[in-house]
Each structure stands twice: as C-alpha cells, then as structure tokens.
Design a protein around this nucleic acid. Sequence first.
DNA 1: AACCGCTTGTGAACGCAGGAACAAAGTCGC
DNA 2: GCGACTTTGTTCCTGCGTTCACAAGCGGTT
Lengths: 239, 239
Amino acid sequence: MFGSLWSLPVSESRPRIIPEATVARLAVYLRVLAGLAGDGRSHVSSGELATAAGVNPAGLRKDLSYLGPCGVRGVGYSVSGLRERLTTALGGERSRPCVVVGLGRLGAALADYAGFASRGFEFVGLLDADPQRVGDCVGGCTVRPIADLESVVADTEAAIGVITTPAEVAQSVCDRLVAAGVRSILNFAPVALTVPPGVDVRKVDLSVELQVLAFLDQQRDGGRQPVTVPVHAGLGAQR
Amino acid sequence: MFGSLWSLPVSESRPRIIPEATVARLAVYLRVLAGLAGDGRSHVSSGELATAAGVNPAGLRKDLSYLGPCGVRGVGYSVSGLRERLTTALGGERSRPCVVVGLGRLGAALADYAGFASRGFEFVGLLDADPQRVGDCVGGCTVRPIADLESVVADTEAAIGVITTPAEVAQSVCDRLVAAGVRSILNFAPVALTVPPGVDVRKVDLSVELQVLAFLDQQRDGGRQPVTVPVHAGLGAQR
DNA sequence: AACCGCTTGTGAACGCAGGAACAAAGTCGC
DNA sequence: GCGACTTTGTTCCTGCGTTCACAAGCGGTT
C-alpha cells in the first residue's frame, strides 16, 4: 500500500480515520496496559494483550495499526510507549470537565466513581431538579439546582454532559446542554435524543442489555419452552 | 399468482435467527410502544415508530420482519398486537429473577431502579463482601453476605447475574455464578470475563463510553469548529 | 556474519449490518 | 365496484467490520 501514494505531499500521514468500534477497543487496551505497567512489565505481545482484552490478536494489531507502527517485530509492544501513544490518540491526559444532570442513584454513582477521575474525567458540575437533593455533596462536588445549568456549563467549560434524568425531561435537558455549549453527551435515559449536527451522543440503555440477555436465555432454552405462539395472533386491523 | 413458491413445505417459517443488534432494537421498539399505548394510540406506522426509536424506517421494518408479518399494509402496526408479539419474542412477560453482586453505589442504583421491575426483571438476591453493607435493604431486598451466593442462586433460581464488583474479584464472582447455574451475566466491571460455552456475557463499560466521547471531541476540535448551533437545525448523529 | 525463530503489520476474503428502491396488499373515496 | 393512495415486506446493493493468512523485520544464537 505504501510507495505509490507516498510521493504525494499528503498533509497528514497519521490521521487516518479510526472506526468508532476500534476507538472503543483502544480504550480497553489502554486500561489493560495500565494494569501491566503496575505489574512492572516492560513489554507485551499482541497475543497476551488480546486475551487480556478479550479480543482477537489479529484484530488488536489492526486496531493499533491505525496509529502507525507501534511495536517491534519479534519483540512485541513497549508497555510505556504504547500507553503514551494510546493516551494521546484518545485525547490526551488533559482533564475533561463533565457535568451530570439528574443526581438520582445512578447519577450519584457515576459522579462518585473513582475510576473516571483516574482517566481524566472530572465531574465539575452536578445538577438536579429536586430541591431536596440540591446542596448534597457527591464525590467532592455540591449539587446545584437545574436552573444553574447554563452558568455551570459556562463557568466550568464542561465538554461532556451526562444525562441520568427521567426520560420525560431528557430531551429538554439535552437541548439546554447543547445550547450551553456541550458537544458530547452520554445518555442513560431511555429515549432517543435529537441533537444538531456536530454533537455526539452515546446511549447506554440498561434495560435493553437485560432484555437481550433474556432473549438469549430464552433462545437457549428454546428446546424446553415451546414458545406457544398463539396461531393467528390477531394483529389484523381490528378497528 | 400465489402458489408457485408458497406450495413449498418450508420447514419453519418462524424461527429465523434474529441478529443480536436487531434484538436490542426490538427492546427499544417495545418501550416506545408502551409509551404509545399509554397515549391511547391504537395504530402506528413504521415511520413514526422509527423516528421515536431513532432508527431508519426501512431498518425497523426489516427488524420486525424477523417475527413474520406483523402489520397491515396501508394501515400500519397495531400497537397492542405488536407489543404482544415483541414481548413474546423477547422472552415473554414471565418474571426473570436476577442477582446483583457488589452493592456499591452502582449496584444499589440498579437494584433500586423501578424501570427493570416493570419489564419483568426482579432483583431477588443482593450480595456484597462488605459486612457493613450486609443487612441493608435496597429496593425491597436485603443484602446478604457473598458467602451465600450459591444458596441464593439456588433458592431463587436466578437466571441473570449482574456483576458490579471491583475488577479484581469480578472473574471469581463470575465463576461462582456460573457454577451455581447462572447462564446470563451483565458485567459492569472493567475486565473481560472468561466463561464456558453456553453462558452469555454482556459488558457495559462506562469509562470506555466517556473515552470514546473524548476522542470524538478531540477529533472534532481538530478542525476547530466553534459549533455555535443552538438553533434546532435538524437531526444529528444518533447512536 | 549468517541463520532461525518469533512477532508485527498488512493484504485479501468473508460475513453482516444498514440503506434505498420496488412490488404486494389492503383501505378509503367515489 | 373500481381506482388511487398508503404502508408494509422484501430484495438488492453498498460499505464496514472481522478474521485468516502471509510477508517483512528484528533479536538472539552459532
């Protein structure tokens, strides 16, 4: 692949587009590498990394190849070197301010989770509509009323918004976050959010996860459970 | 007209294999339908359902076609009929007992979430290694010591295990759950679990979600796009 | 200095999901 | 009763992601 095209003065050789699925796995590799570094390992092979991350070795190498040559043939990957590379590729070590809207149990759990802080995600704004929760201190930050959303986002320059509100208000909260300047949203509310172009939304739907498991469970038990599909289920237009 | 192909004695028309991605979307459709039923709607078109679920109308119809003909051409889908069919396809309405291991904030949030109970997921066993948490009552269930894992799973015939423990103990907890008879596991610990064949694992990795957002954010800032689009321009990236 | 084994990086093929277009089928209006 | 409109169900096609397999390169050894 190289040779013919490289004579062209391509402005950038690195920023080949990275598939989103690959990005997600890179984050996993980075975490595994952190563990290996803690164990004092200096080098690691693709096979070992792959099993620790739960993926195929060839796929792992292809994922890493998006960053350019990272390893040494015959030896493997330098743990520290690869960590550095992955860290910068995923957005650097700089602290990323986040706001959480909806400090129910789930929101509080996220705001208090230490695993985020160690990756540079800092929860600098907590917002809730319930006056009884306002003033609570969660994870070293004080809960403020939802009316302060715009000012909190502006003051903290928050880059990521986490929505853990009831479904009914999720869209309006989302709109306000976007209007205030947040361009990345992690949505736990069970609704499909509508956002303008240029804003990224990722959705985590815990009910769906459970329901998929239930489906797989049923499918496995398929021989046992005759399903009992009512013949002629009456979907016809009875109207 | 009809007859040429239809005369073939196709062995089975129903149990076509359903892709897992489709199953996940079916769960979303089911939830949207519940909302529509609450609004008193009797029929709905694929277009309306698709926008509410955040997917493509053609894709939605293809998803539903895995269940066989569900709608009426020229009219749409019967809300109640489609609900019934999706419910049975996803595993029926029967209560599915679940156990949660690790009653930290996240585990407690899950155990207490009412949205699960309404879908038939019942948390019948809560386990934690911390003696200080044992005896607590979360969501109407009492936390028991981790030593009771096997007996709790056996007594409740739990089908689904939710792991919200620290990463270090997740694999051992998983092994014990599987040995006790659990065949579906939802893992929130940031490790790749190893399970024997016949056991399904789904992983939810919140750090990865944030890190993907950070990557997209960085990639967007590569072109320095001030965005400034508070205007409700249109449908953005939905994921 | 040359060989050999080990590991990476990449090219190619396969399978799958997603999207658009089209035909079948049913309803509503006249 | 008939025609036109609406909406589903399906088929084709394109693109992406994943896996397999092999050549290239590096270190250690003789």
